[in-house]
């Protein structure tokens, strides 16, 4: 393997990792802050992808596609939290069951509106193509993904650690009654967090669609698995852990796809199983159970 191949694989792995991070970030946020594992996350991701495709086809603006998908994610997430998730806080089993139901409903709705077949998604012209530097080929869209992923990671991290909103959210997780008593409507804050996580999922969907080249109604469940894996590997409650877990999974996927293509699908699952068994709280997880 030459140096060029190695650099190519690493860049591809990093950008895939960032893509996975984009789709896992919302899941990680909701799971880490509220302890709710959202099984409908993949559906919100898919919904984002479809919104992006439709808006891009009609307007030709990728920026508009990104923004409108996030708005749809925000709105649907807010409604989902209000109608279902809110009723089952503190009950892990009921959360799994009810969000699975939301997943079924959203998937079927998308199939009813757009049909069960795939819809081809072009890369926006400005981001199409690649640069070649010697034997290293840099695909523009992958670099764009890398940049967006980094921005989201830093922005959310700062939001959580440096702002008043982040402080309220973290305090609300520790002691909701106390935060409520201090005059903050903690239920509203939780709705907001959930909606924001859903918007991040939708963003991941729009970003993923051109990279894969198509959207389809099953893309949610397929990618949700990856998001789960990185959240578990990164550790519950650790947003940066999810980012590092994503990069780990992205790189592992890229290298095994080169050396051992047959195993590339299984390697993520094995990675998660190993991490979960050796360190049930993930690589960067906090505290006990």
């Amino acid at each position: 393997m030459g140096m060029g191949t190695f650099v190519n694989l690493t860049v591809n792995g990093l950008s895939t990792g960032m893509m996975i991070f984009l789709l896992a970030s919302g899941l990680s946020l909701i799971f880490g802050l509220m302890g709710v594992l959202n099984f409908a996350h993949g559906s919100l991701f898919m919904l984002g992808g479809y919104t992006g495709v439709v808006v891009f086809a009609h307007s030709g603006s990728f920026i508009l596609a990104l923004v409108s998908a996030m708005l749809v994610g925000l709105l649907v997430g807010w409604v989902v939290e209000r109608l279902t998730v809110r009723r089952v806080y503190g009950n892990a089993i009921a959360q799994i069951l009810v969000t699975t139901g939301v997943m079924i409903v959203l998937n079927e709705l998308v199939k009813a509106v757009f049909g069960p077949d795939i819809i081809a998604t072009p890369v926006p012209p400005l981001l199409a193509g690649s640069w070649a530097i010697g034997s290293v080929i840099l695909i523009k869209y992958r670099l764009f993904t890398l940049a967006v992923g980094l921005v989201v990671a830093v922005a959310v991290h700062l939001l959580l650690t440096k702002t008043r909103l982040g402080m309220v959210v973290r305090a609300g997780v520790e002691n909701p009654e106390m935060v409520q008593a201090l005059g903050i409507n903690i239920r509203q804050v939780f709705s907001l967090v959930f909606a924001f996580g859903a918007a991040l999922a939708a963003l991941g969907g729009v970003m993923m669609a051109p990279a894969v080249g198509a959207v389809n109604p099953d893309m949610g469940l397929q990618n949700q698995m990856l998001a789960f894996i990185v959240v578990v590997i990164g550790g519950m409650g650790s947003f940066l852990g999810s980012a590092l877990g994503s990069i780990l999974v992205g790189l592992a996927g890229a290298y095994t796809a080169w050396f051992l293509p047959e195993a590339s699908l299984a390697v993520n699952v094995l990675l998660m199983a190993v991490v979960l068994l050796l360190r049930p709280n993930g690589l960067f997880g906090m505290g006990g159970e």
Partner: peptide, 28 residues
């Protein structure tokens, strides 16, 4: 033996992962 050591959501996820593994084997 491997997955019952973790609970609730983690168990749901690790079993999903195992099922995925079997589906991949059946596919490949």
């Amino acid at each position: 033996y491997l997955s019952l050591r973790v609970k609730d959501v983690y168990y749901a996820m690790i079993t999903l992962a195992f099922a995925e593994l079997f589906a991949i084997i059946a596919e490949k």
